[in-house]
């Protein structure tokens, strides 16, 4: 049934993604593909995998943006522009338009935890759900002809044969920068909800009216390199070389000379 669940439970499982700590390494992208090509539903195929025009279905992708403050200068590292790596996967929207447009009932939102899934045996591959999603979270698998999307690793998070630490989505488990957090955003006392409250987590494209469950944490304010240089005289404690002895003392002096 592609009508959205009514009076559903208050559980809203989802991700919180920290744009401050993401280093753009794409580890989550790869581990997502690795887990999901052998997990839920058909494999995630690639077309022309070893050729020049390789492309395929991925459920999680990292985009990279440049943000330029008003009047900010763009001069490489010294300018005010800043780079923000931006991982993006399905946001498991509360008002998921991808679900309601589906003509077959293949797309659905689970009442018990809010996860949005595709029943691949029902999908006709019309692609309308991908048109309805503003976030580019759905990609057609061209080999199987069915729509693929993030399952929130539904086959990991409830898997009792896994150790507790592994019962999280593959991307969360993999992230070396700890930029991805998983939990129940419907529970105001959960760790993820507290994190969102503390750091001012926000929705993507609120104007689209989808009420995404996943939240993003903004990058923390930073000092531009130019500003940091001006700090020189009163250098922070840990940058001072006073008191270095032996080899380190020699190194300090040698480096100062260069």
């Amino acid at each position: 049934m592609t009508s959205l669940p009514q009076g559903s439970s208050s559980r809203k499982l989802g991700l919180v993604i920290d744009l401050d700590t993401c280093v753009g390494c794409h580890a989550c992208v790869v581990s997502c593909k690795e887990w999901n090509t052998g997990g839920y539903g058909s494999a995630l195929s690639d077309q022309d995998p070893y050729g020049a025009d390789v492309s395929g279905a991925w459920l999680n992708r990292v985009h990279t943006f440049e943000v330029i403050p008003e009047g900010g200068e763009v001069i490489g590292e010294a300018g005010e522009a800043r780079i923000v790596h931006f991982p993006k996967s399905c946001l498991h929207c509360e008002d998921a338009p991808c679900v309601t447009v589906c003509p077959t009932g293949a797309s659905y939102k689970r009442a018990e935890d809010g996860i949005v899934l595709v029943d691949e045996d029902k999908c006709i591959g019309c692609g309308l759900c991908a048109w309805a999603c503003a976030y580019g979270a759905r990609e057609m698998d061209l080999a199987a002809g069915v729509m693929k999307k993030c399952t929130l690793c539904v086959d990991r998070i409830y898997n009792d044969t896994f150790e507790e630490v592994d019962r999280v989505p593959a991307c969360v488990r993999t992230c070396p920068a700890n930029a991805r957090h998983f939990g129940d955003l419907g529970d105001p006392h959960s760790d993820v909800s507290k994190l969102v409250a503390e750091r001012g987590g926000f929705d993507l494209m609120p104007e689209q009216g989808n009420r995404p469950v996943n939240k993003y944490l903004p990058p923390r304010p930073r000092t531009a390199l130019a500003g940091a240089a001006a700090l020189k005289p009163g250098q922070p404690e840990e940058e001072s070389t006073e008191g270095a002895t032996g080899f380190l003392r020699w190194l300090d002096v040698a480096l100062d000379r260069i």
Partner: peptide
């Protein structure tokens, strides 16, 4: 709005 970074400045891919 797509990145939610508009409060910092102009966003460009």
């Amino acid at each position: 709005t797509a990145t939610g970074l508009g409060h910092i400045g102009a966003v460009r891919l």
